[in-house]
Design a binder for these strands. Structure first.
Length: 303
DNA sequence: AGAATTTGACCTCG
DNA sequence: CGAGGTCAAATTCT
């Protein structure tokens, strides 16, 4: 625990330092956006590292609970080592004729997930601000609803291994259990419409993409129809990079830990070392919650 | 036309 | 062998 603790402190200092750099950068209206994104990713990585240390040193779980969401971390089993690769499994089809082998022998070119971190979120919404591509659906034994499989849209262009499985577990209210598998390794891109919504059109939290409904789903001061990071210096808010903060699984960990299940944006305040989190309800009223990042924020409480 | 989803075959694992 | 996870052709959407 001693070394872990040191590492945590180190990570957090690093994260804070990077956040300060980002803050300075963003005060400059002509600041390098690419650099800003890099800094942001660095900060996110810091959080990821911190969380992974925290969760790894925590044999049991249940440091969770959020209004409508709970997180359940699962440690990877180091037992399984990957075997079948695309290309190395020529052994099987030595004469075995499958039913439809006639017109497809490119099958089997996939590997089953091995050891990667996963965590489960139970929530009334499935949309999470990340870009997912559905690649399968399956009826699960003893489950009343099918399970949907998603992978990161950047799987192919950036090799991102993040996937998630979404399963409706309740109908009234509509509740989903989402299992995230693997961290995003892709670099967050600037997207005009960062909120990718789930397939359920009834999802009340759905933030429509700009083309669909030119609504006012979000507080107007965001300046865009999308959730954004707000970099705030006292009262003057600047709209930062959209999607990048929400576009990371660890953000969900984080906000759940902070009891911010509805949060879709993050606001960094410079003068008080405060991280404020904004969220809004169905009536589009937003709420700001804040924690003192300097001393009140006690990471031990996660354990 | 290209992107996203659907769907059933195929694969791995217990 | 069955359950669950993945692939990719077909289909639908934008």
């Amino acid at each position: 625990m001693g070394t872990n603790h040191k590492r945590l402190i180190g990570e957090l200092h690093e994260g804070r330092k990077t956040a300060e750099e980002l803050q300075i950068l963003l005060q400059n209206p002509y600041g390098d956006r690419v650099l800003a994104e890099e800094l942001l990713m660095k900060i996110m990585t810091t959080f990821a590292e911190t969380l992974s240390v925290l969760t790894a040193s925590d044999g049991h779980e249940d440091h969770q609970s959020a209004a409508s969401g709970e997180v359940h971390q699962v440690k990877p089993e180091p037992s399984q080592v990957e075997h079948s690769h695309c290309g190395d499994r020529s052994s099987e089809d030595s004469g075995e004729s499958r039913k439809t082998q006639a017109f497809k022998d490119r099958r089997g070119c996939y590997k089953r997930r091995k050891t990667c971190q996963s965590w489960t979120v139970t929530s009334t919404k499935i949309e999470d601000g990340q870009a997912w591509r559905k690649y399968g659906q399956k009826i699960i034994l003893n489950a009343p609803y099918p399970r949907a499989y998603f992978r990161c849209t950047r799987k192919f262009d950036q090799g991102c291994k993040a996937t998630k499985q979404v399963q409706q577990i309740q109908d009234n209210p509509l509740t989903y259990q989402t299992t995230y598998i693997g961290e995003h390794t892709c670099r967050a891109m600037i997207k005009p419409s960062p909120m990718i919504i789930g397939s359920n059109p009834r999802d009340s939290q759905t933030v429509s993409s700009e083309s669909g409904t030119p609504h006012h789903q979000n507080p107007s001061f965001f300046g865009t129809s999308a959730p954004s990071i707000l970099i705030a210096k006292q009262e003057d808010y600047k709209v930062g990079t959209p999607s990048d903060v929400t576009d990371n699984s660890m953000w969900h960990d984080w906000k759940d830990h902070l009891d911010l299940s509805e949060t879709v944006g993050i606001c960094v305040s410079s003068n008080e070392d405060v991280v404020s989190n904004m969220h809004w309800d169905e009536d589009m009223d937003y709420v700001v919650k804040s924690i003192n990042f300097e001393e009140d924020f006690n990471f031990e409480s996660f354990l």
